[in-house]
């Protein structure tokens, strides 16, 4: 009995802090979504009418679509690049691994606010590196105002997101590859399997749990990222880079509609919890 009490006392500080500043607000948000609000105070019970508003809220659907595109792009680009780089890197000397690993991860140590500012310059139509580089190789005609044009803004931002994320994928994949039994590679090499064959038939299948983990992580991040959009485009031009979190932020702080901001938050929470619940099962069975 006393040992159980000790265990509870050990968990308590973390639990109290966590429940007070994360758990409780989530319950409150769920409750807020059921009321109508005006100027920060409740004006009446709203039932599910806040949720009914979602259907006609075209910004919500646009934002959700952008989060979806972001998920797909993140799974396609940084994850696959991370896998490829890690498998090449795994065959290099420990010194090379350490140096290149640090270089790839470096962007992740830069706050997204600063990353947004730097890349804002790179994409600047007047003096930015992107257009300058295109000019240098004779493709100046392809240049543009990357973050200001509806057709390119979201994708240009995704390149920044990938920039901060692919190094993390390299590190995680690298750790997983180094845990693979080397005799599997030796056997494959003795059989004359090419690098590409070893990659396809040894590395990729054995890394499936890691890929699932990173995929889950990437998908969750793609649903809840905020900083990068907020410091670069604030969801613009128009709503062309609007995502769920910026929609929540604007609804809460700029419009002051607490009830609907809470409703959007509940939807976002429901999505990430469902996605992670499903993935958790996949991970367990993998």
């Amino acid at each position: 009995m006393t040992s159980q009490r000790t265990a509870i006392l050990f968990v308590l500080p973390a639990l109290v802090l966590y429940l007070a500043f994360v758990g409780l607000p989530i319950l409150q948000v769920a409750a807020y979504s059921l009321f109508s609000w005006d100027n920060g105070s409740v004006t009446g019970f709203a039932g599910l009418s806040n949720f009914a508003r979602l259907i006609d809220d075209s910004v919500f659907w646009t934002a959700l679509g952008h989060n979806g595109i972001w998920v797909v792009l993140t799974l396609a680009f940084p994850l696959m690049i991370g896998l490829l780089l890690a498998s090449i890197l795994a065959e290099c000397s420990p010194r090379t691994i350490r140096i290149l690993g640090a270089i790839y991860f470096l962007p992740r140590t830069i706050p997204l606010v600063v990353a947004g500012i730097i890349w804002g310059w790179i994409y600047n139509p007047m003096f930015g590196l992107a257009n300058w580089a295109l000019d240098m190789v004779g493709l100046g005609a392809l240049g543009g105002a990357w973050l200001a044009e509806p057709s390119t803004a979201l994708y240009a931002l995704n390149v920044v997101g990938a920039w901060t994320f692919f190094g993390f994928c390299v590190l995680i994949y690298l750790a997983a590859i180094q845990a693979i039994d080397p005799s599997l590679y030796e056997a494959a090499q003795l059989d004359g399997a090419s690098w590409m064959k070893r990659f396809r038939f040894v590395t990729v299948p054995l890394l499936k749990p890691t890929t699932l983990f990173l995929g889950l992580y990437a998908a969750i991040e793609a649903m809840r990222f905020f900083d990068l959009v907020w410091v670069t485009t604030q969801g613009g031009p128009g709503y062309d880079t609007e995502v769920l979190t910026t929609h929540i932020y604007k609804t809460f702080f700029l419009v002051g509609d607490f009830g609907y901001a809470a409703t959007l938050s509940v939807v976002l929470l429901a999505i990430v919890l469902t996605v992670s619940g499903v993935s958790y099962r996949l991970l367990r069975s993998a």
Partner: peptide
Amino acid sequence: GLVVPAPSVIVAL
């Protein structure tokens, strides 16, 4: 809590 988006919490926080 690993997946909770900070903007959702902030509405009540």
